[in-house]
């Protein structure tokens, strides 16, 4: 990746006053946050807090009831994500995602999964199939490049030995890594991960952390939803906490860890007890 002239702390994603209503239920209520370029931003919160809904709004699977989602691309272009169609979020805005319950093309091989991810680039190279059918050399080069790109990500995700096996045949942890590799093959600027560590054993979890850090270090920003606090605290640069569709905390992992509101939300205490905890924490700190 070419080194950026702009500071690494500029904003890549800005969510403002996001609200999402399902029938009478206000799943997200006036939620705003920012994700910085080159950082890993984590979105956490108790079950049912609305994290996946926020995700689905950002990645175009839901149309938000209200609010603005702005994405700043590297060239300085800004896009309003809520105005894009679902597939354009990836194609035009460079936002890729994974799913909480893994969605691989299980009947295609691992390699084919990664080639499908490069669909738009390959389509262009194949002259929308016509040049490709005629066997144009430019297309052949593009195909070779796409296989090299796939090989690069297979090696990074430690899947190179399984390249020719059906994706459905992989273990759970390997499927998670493949889904991330597949998303990266679309060449995104922002990678959104929906509970990437769910169901992984501690060893697999460590490998995943390393993979995510290396993705960040190569210049892709990450936004992740996570339940596993050890993962969040270990790798995130910035944490946003959501409860009942509203933001209750926002800051560095250290800040959020000690925020009494967050502790209350996770332990499930009454509002008036929050102060008590606050006092206790202050006492502990002294």
């Amino acid at each position: 990746m070419a080194p950026e002239t702009t500071a690494m702390t500029d904003t890549i994603l800005k969510v403002e006053h996001l609200s999402m209503k399902f029938g009478g239920l206000m799943a997200i209520n006036d939620f705003s946050f920012e994700a910085k370029r080159g950082e890993i931003t984590a979105l956490i919160g108790p079950n049912g807090a609305g994290k996946t809904t926020v995700f689905n709004c950002i990645t175009g699977f839901y149309k938000p009831t209200m609010g603005m989602i702005t994405l700043h691309r590297r060239g300085g272009r800004t896009l309003l994500l809520e105005r894009l169609k679902d597939f354009e979020i990836n194609k035009k805005a460079g936002v890729a995602r994974t799913f909480q319950n893994i969605r691989l093309f299980s009947g295609l091989t691992v390699l084919e999964n990664l080639l499908v991810a490069q669909h738009n680039a390959l389509m262009r190279a194949s002259g929308y199939t016509i040049l490709g059918l005629l066997g144009a050399p430019a297309y052949k080069r593009a195909v070779a490049d796409s296989i090299e790109k796939a090989r690069y990500w297979l090696e990074k995700a430690d899947l190179i030995d399984r390249a020719d096996d059906p994706a459905g045949d992989l273990s759970y942890g390997a499927q998670r890594r493949l889904e991330i590799a597949r998303a990266m093959c679309t060449g995104p600027e922002l990678l959104c991960l929906d509970e990437p560590a769910a169901g992984l054993n501690p060893k697999e979890s460590l490998t995943l952390n390393a993979l995510l850090r290396s993705i960040r270090d190569e210049g892709t920003s990450l936004l992740l939803i996570e339940h596993d606090m050890s993962v969040v605290m270990e790798i995130s640069d910035h944490v946003v906490v959501l409860e009942y569709g509203q933001k209750i905390s926002d800051g560095t992992p250290e800040h959020v860890k000690t925020d009494p509101k967050v502790i209350a939300a996770y332990l499930g205490v009454e509002d008036d007890e929050v102060e008590e905890i606050e006092e206790q924490l202050d006492g502990g700190a002294v």
């Binding site: 597939f87 009947g107 295609l108 991810a117 669909h119």
Partner: peptide, 23 residues
């Protein structure tokens, strides 16, 4: 070709296809 692979991917999982930028 990419189009044929996209067909098969569509058969396997339409939502994943959209998340990968496939119209």
């Amino acid at each position: 070709m990419p189009i044929g692979r996209a067909w098969e991917a569509l058969r396997e999982d339409e939502i994943a296809c959209r998340s990968l930028g496939i119209n």
